[in-house]
């Protein structure tokens, strides 16, 4: 379990990093927190010719909170975002999700943007970005573009980021008024990838009836997908909305796969159970506690 040979680059500026990525193309791989890349290198599952270490680009470590939401730089660690009070105030779902990401030692190194670019459908943060309608900012030599979550995740472990692009930040939009969120998951062991997990968002209208109810399930398909259950739960107050029908709709619309830890039928069942719990909690929060 030692990596194959590679050239190591340690750029001192974003510009330099983009130059290297432009030169290395498909043979280059960005190293941020290294919590996925290093094991893949050590198991020789990945063999890039060039590893571009961005850990010295401290300008990418910023986490900014504004009226539009939370923007995390490419070097912002999970722990940094998880512990930030302003982040929790602006977008509480981030902290809830991050507490479910692996273990503290991994969260101390792993980065939020790195997790998004890794695009593992079993991970929490792609689900959060999708649910909130966020976006990832990609830079290449001479150009910058923002890719919305719905177009960013293109397949299991595949994203819209091109080989010469560096994901420099991600935006997690703030919630509109009278909105609430929740994240529930079941994992085999504390900190494991979830067998099933559900991020939910509920928005109420001025009469405090459900105006929008949406979920994104983890580990339920090749990419995180927004499931709109507004029509299933009914335009009612949270206490009388039909969350059971919403959960059934979630079960019907996802496509989980079996693996050595759980059958597809169990995952589907579990996603329904967790969707109901998450929707109820999100609605309760939207209603003011």
């Amino acid at each position: 379990m030692k990596p194959p040979p590679f050239d190591y680059h340690s750029p001192r500026s974003v510009g330099e990093a983009l130059e290297i990525l432009a030169a290395t193309g498909r043979d280059g791989k960005v190293l941020a927190g290294g919590q996925s890349l290093i094991p893949m290198l050590n198991m020789r599952l990945a063999a890039p010719g060039h590893v571009v270490d961005i850990n010295r680009l401290t300008e990418l470590a910023a986490v900014t909170v504004g009226p539009d939401g939370v923007r995390t730089g490419a070097l912002a660690r999970h722990a940094q975002v998880e512990r930030s009070g302003p982040v929790a105030a602006a977008q509480p779902l981030l902290r809830r999700a991050l507490r479910l990401v692996a273990h503290p030692a991994i969260r101390n190194r792993g980065t939020v943007v790195g997790s998004l670019v890794h695009a593992d459908p079993a991970a929490e943060l792609p689900a959060v970005l999708t649910l909130l309608g966020g976006s990832v900012r990609l830079a290449r030599r001479g150009a910058v573009r923002d890719v919305p979550a719905a177009r960013f995740f293109t397949g299991p472990l595949e994203s819209a980021a091109e080989p010469d692009e560096l994901a420099v930040s991600a935006l997690f939009p703030a919630l509109p008024p009278r909105s609430g969120t929740a994240f529930h998951e079941v994992a085999r062991r504390h900190g494991d990838y979830a067998l099933a997990g559900v991020a939910a968002r509920v928005r109420l209208d001025d009469d405090l009836r459900v105006a929008a109810a949406e979920v994104v399930c983890v580990n339920a398909g090749p990419v995180p997908e927004l499931v709109d259950v507004t029509g299933d739960c009914g335009h009612r107050a949270p206490g009388t909305a039909d969350w059971g029908a919403a959960a059934r709709a979630v079960r019907d619309r996802i496509d989980p796969e079996a693996d050595i830890h759980a059958s597809a039928a169990y995952r589907r069942h579990l996603a329904g159970v967790l969707a109901e719990r998450a929707l109820r909690d999100a609605a309760t929060e939207a209603a003011g506690g």
Binding site: M43, R188, R189, H190, G191, D192, I260, H261
Partner: peptide, 28 residues
């Protein structure tokens, strides 16, 4: 509750790592 060695029909051990061989943590 957790540990098993999952061999497929070809004799490949499918969970030969601590990611998938579920040794319990202190939390379990």
């Amino acid at each position: 509750l957790y540990e098993r060695m999952v061999y497929d029909e070809h004799g490949q051990l499918l969970n030969a790592s601590f990611m998938d061989f579920l040794m319990p943590y202190a939390t379990e």
